[in-house]
Nucleic acid binder design. Sequence first.
DNA 1: TATTGTTATACTCTATAACTATA
DNA 2: TATAGTTATAGAGTATAACAATA
Lengths: 158, 158
Amino acid sequence: MTTNEPVPGFTEALVRLAHLVQQVYGEVAREHDLTPQQAQLLCLLIGGPVGMTELTRALHLEKSSLTGLVDRAERRGLVARVRDSRDRRACLIELTGEGTRTAVLAHDGVTRQLETLAADLPAEHRELVASAIGGILAEHTSRTGRAWSAPGPHRQGG
Amino acid sequence: MTTNEPVPGFTEALVRLAHLVQQVYGEVAREHDLTPQQAQLLCLLIGGPVGMTELTRALHLEKSSLTGLVDRAERRGLVARVRDSRDRRACLIELTGEGTRTAVLAHDGVTRQLETLAADLPAEHRELVASAIGGILAEHTSRTGRAWSAPGPHRQGG
DNA sequence: TATTGTTATACTCTATAACTATA
DNA sequence: TATAGTTATAGAGTATAACAATA
């Protein structure tokens, strides 16, 4: 009985929510003089340096697109390329001092905005929504066959 | 007691969900040889012709950006500009025949993908999630002070 | 040979500022 | 004056293909 008639507004709600989150990201990014893509990149790096190949998977970008994104962020002093000591072809992208400050501000800004918008939602509903989304993400992960590291509010302690 | 300690994973889940929806949109768009932005535009027009100014609000774009987006979609035969009989400055954007076919396919593709990913979610949870999202969207609308028309799975019968 | 990342190229997306035409 | 939309311009984002260096 998991597939009765689908709630008509369900996918519409998901799409609208996604659009809203994008909008929040854009607004917060702009407050810090970032593009949304740069904000995503920075938030993704808060947990520590990440290799280019892993970043292409996390951001769903072609490697050449990522090269350009990192180039521009590097030019603005937000990130730096460091050589990978174990593979001389590879490099890791890490936040600079300014990049770290900006990343944390952007991350906190997005989180605060979303928390504010969801302030009226009872705690148990929040947990249910988070759990439902977790299920959707897990289903997607199992279908695409690899783990997933999203940009944005990150899991600390990695 | 609406603002206890926030569920830590809540905003993270929202952000990851937004990213997933974006990804689905991108994949479906590509299947139909569209950019994600073109797919958004097309889906937004399924309900009928929409004016440029309203489109800038729905898509959160500057008017000149929208001009370019519509230009390219028009050049590809997906949409057409029609004069507004009540205001000779304004025009309405409407789907062409091919545009309508493509828009419906893209819309259905996104819906189907998301429904598939959420297939394991019990119906009552789906309703609760949709309702919770509705509350977040309503809160945002009341803060920004205007109604909102999202691209993507649309509300028919408007 | 396969993988990592860059370069070259072309296009789309986006914003700002200045503009035209209409209200 | 204000609004609807376009044009000009510049930069950012993205993909494809070809390439260099390393594994």
